[in-house]
Nucleic acid binder design. Structure first.
Lengths: 193, 193
DNA sequence: CGTCTATTTGAATGTACTCAAAAGCGGTGG
DNA sequence: CCACCGCTTTTGAGTACATTCAAATAGACG
């Protein structure tokens, strides 16, 4: 009953309905991959060949600038899709690194296979449109927040919105998601309770 | 030869090919609307019923916080799509205002009609997936920049990337896009060459 | 246990904001 | 057509938010 595809099929079913044949077309394209803590799934500058669906564990996408400063772009936990969308779509150099924060199980779907899937089962155009629409709205809200709120307000919202992530990642990583230094996050936390 | 649909059809043709019948199905759903400077197409808190394609002129989407501070979310000039995606998709209260910066001509496409169009001409699933993918990538890059760069660096990138917008909007609006005060933008500009 | 990294704390500094006031600019009406 | 009004832009002083650097403490992991 617990196949590695259970979670992803429920995820897909939130937006489109598939018959058995379509389920088969889809799942044959998925490759189950197990990664250990600190494993890198994608390196900044490389071309991103896969989009990943997280079955279990936790991933982090982050950007490293010329001063070696890290900015966390997103976290991925169970039931989330994650990739470097720019690199994946355009097959250009990746803007970000993708690493496992703990031992994780992911399903990878290659660009080539996804392009085939769009032709074979056009419903997936709709599915990924939905997924990306939601991701776009989240990023837009994040832009608004990062431009209009103080770090303290952004931290408060983050811990309310993503309690399941807070438990699993370090403060340093949260700080880099908020765009502040770990030292400053520490002082924010000190003056809260 | 210059119908109000020329530009939008060329925009669509970048991603999908339509036969004559499909062109007709599409264009009948589009309503040409002319707006004057300062007209509001969408008010924060209202439900956004349309997605807009800009034929000419310039629009601005902005968020106003509880302290009446404005943050510009995006500008829309000719050949751009613009809407409050969150409100449009979910038919919930809009996060942002949408106003004309100058007298402009837009084509509006309603949520209801777009949902019909997806059924009648499923290629549009692909088209809007493409449009939104690109918008998502742009927002992600903007998040990275707003979190990892100084205001001066962001300003330099903005004027390089969007010279056609710089010409048409005030510094106050650019400042609110960068998430800084107009006073500070002025000092940044003063110390450049 | 020892080592390595994360977190905390504090002092000095830099980036960006607030408030205020003056100067510039554009549209509008007389 | 020009004078005025309102808004934008500039400039400056004082302040707040957040960083850097340094050092001490606490945790995690082999």
């Amino acid at each position: 009953m617990t196949s590695p595809f259970d979670l992803i099929l429920r995820n897909v079913a939130k937006h489109i309905s598939l018959d058995e044949k379509e389920v088969a077309s889809f799942t044959t394209l998925l490759q189950k991959v197990t990664v250990s803590k600190k494993d890198i799934l994608l390196r900044q500058g490389d071309v991103c060949k896969y989009i990943y669906f997280v079955n279990s564990g936790a991933l982090r996408a982050y950007y490293v600038d010329k001063h070696d400063k890290e900015t966390t772009i997103m976290f991925g936990v169970a039931d989330w899709w994650i990739t470097d969308m720019y690199s994946f779509l355009n097959q250009q150099s990746a803007l970000m690194n993708l690493e496992a924060l703990e031992s994780s199980e992911v399903l990878e779907l290659s660009k080539v296979d996804l392009d085939k899937l769009y032709v074979e089962v056009p419903k997936f155009e709709r599915f990924f449109r939905m997924i990306i629409q939601n991701a776009y709205v989240r990023e837009q809200v994040r832009v608004i927040q990062s431009l209009s709120m103080t770090a303290e307000e952004r931290y408060t919202i983050f811990i309310q919105k993503y309690p399941q992530i807070v438990q699993r990642v370090t403060q340093k990583q949260i700080a880099s998601y908020l765009g502040i230094t770990p030292e400053f996050l520490s002082t924010i936390r000190a003056r809260k309770p």
